[in-house]
Design a protein around this nucleic acid. Structure first.
Lengths: 187, 187
DNA sequence: ACCTGAACACCGTTCAAGT
DNA sequence: ACCTGAACACCGTTCAAGT
């Protein structure tokens, strides 16, 4: 009936990683916040890599649900795009945090293989969704150009988040996104 | 006459940070590579923050020189822009490394204040240079729009590097940059 | 089934001691 | 001036032991 310890660990760890990265996540700190000993964390997640992979997996799964709901809620490409960029904006407004997989992508070489695999899947999920969005009402002929543009949009949004976070200023994110729209990169 | 130990430390540390991040930098590993004991690193750089700040400071200073040389070498905006994006490309082609300050921006919350200050200065250097480039032959009237676009270009380039690194595929970087150009974000 | 204390080899840091 | 060994409190991890 009370909150499942495993879920509490994941929720707490996710917030920590979004703030300080995978490398910055400490099992001892995490345990202290959850109210158990660090050895107990290992009972639920044998290694740090197991925990990181579980976090990224759940993150990617949630992204699929959230993004697909946008497509169903509105037929307008521009409106869906705005909702999409607002998701990444909300991480920043939540204490200057970053996309879980964006910050982990920067830590690429420090990640265990099982974590890296889930981070890659998050990228796939995003690009696939953007392709679906950009393809609305277009012929199949332009598929290559659309895939390239989807990749560019994802990269640009992640970059806007990265730079805005570095500045600690969400207005930087808003300005970058607006400039992308003005230039015609975003629909 | 032989290589200055302090310089060897900085060169080695820089490569390590570009590969594994500031958090991923270990004084003991660094010392082993340089051929001294970790306590000796502390003689030259009392704290890890001192070393990190020195690395970012030199990185930003070098960027100023390199970028300004582009402006002097060519009057063509497009050519200068291509040289600029090639600088960020070269980090990836050097064993999938990242821009020193890009990877550190992701580690924002883990950085000592003195490191963060130098990372911020690198961003300033980039945006100021991009503004100078975009302003060529334009009236002062559009200054606001130009500043916004400069910020967006920097963010987009950093994002392309981040995503390409995550994929371990430099072609991803090239595709994103090309899509930015097609969309009209890059001149 | 779930948690813990104690131990291990790591980490940055400090400092007295060496040359 | 430059380097070092030893110690400190941290880290992820393991494991025998508890309930």
């Amino acid at each position: 009936m009370t909150a499942d310890t495993k879920q509490v660990i994941m929720d707490t760890a996710r917030a920590m990683v979004q703030a300080r990265g995978y490398s910055g996540l400490s099992f001892r700190e995490l345990a202290k916040e959850v109210g158990v000993k660090s050895a107990s964390i290992h009972y639920h997640f044998p290694t740090k890599g197991d925990l990181g992979a579980a976090l990224a997996r759940r993150y990617a799964d949630e992204a699929i649900e959230i993004f697909d709901a946008f497509l169903e809620a509105s037929p307008d490409i521009g409106a869906c795009m705005r909702k999409y960029t607002d998701v990444f904006r909300s991480a920043l407004s939540n204490n200057n945090r970053m996309c879980l997989c964006g910050i982990m992508a920067a830590e690429h070489d420090d990640l265990p293989a099982e974590v890296r695999a889930e981070v890659d899947r998050f990228t796939d999920v995003n690009i696939r969704w953007l392709i679906k969005l950009l393809s609305r009402g277009k012929s199949k002929a332009a598929a290559g150009a659309i895939a390239q543009r989807a990749l560019a949009i994802f990269a640009a949004v992640e970059g806007a988040q990265l730079v805005a976070r570095g500045r600690g200023d969400i207005a930087v994110y808003d300005q970058a996104i607006e400039a992308y729209r003005t230039a015609g990169l975003l629909p």
